[in-house]
Amino acid sequence: MAYSEKVIDHYENPRNVGSLDKNDPQVATGMVGAPACGDVMKLQLKISDDGIIEDAKFKTYGCGSAIASSSLVTEWVKGKSIDEAAEIKNTAIAEELALPPVKIHCSILAEDAIKAAIEDYRTKNND
C-alpha cells in the first residue's frame, strides 16, 4: 500500500517527538491504544493557565499512518485553546494525510489521544 507524501513526510521527519514532565500540573497526558493493530500512542499537552496549548509532544509505536496522525496533531493543537483542540475530528486528520480507508483508525486514535489528554487535564485541575 502506498503512503501519501504527507504521511511519508511526517513519518520521516516527525514533529514534536518526545515527552513532557508528566508531574508538571500544566502537563496533560493522553494514552490510547488500538487493539486491532497493537499501536500505542501517547500525546502530551502543556496548557497555560488561560487554557491555551503551549506545547505538544507525542510518542507513538505503530505504523506510518499512526505516527503521521499523531505528529500532525501536535502541530495542529499548538496555540489552540483546549476547547478548540477538542473540536479536531479524525476526518480532518484523515483528509489532510490522505489516509486510505484501512488506516482511518489511525486518525481515530489521534483524535482519541487529544480527548484523553484534555480529560486528564480536567481531572488534574479539578482536584
Binding site: M31, G33, A34, P35, A36, I108, L109, D112
Partner: peptide, 9 residues
C-alpha cells in the same frame, strides 16, 4: 469494534 481505541492508562 476492532477499531475502537483502548484507554486503560
Amino acid at each position: 469494534s476492532e477499531q475502537a481505541s483502548f484507554g486503560d492508562v
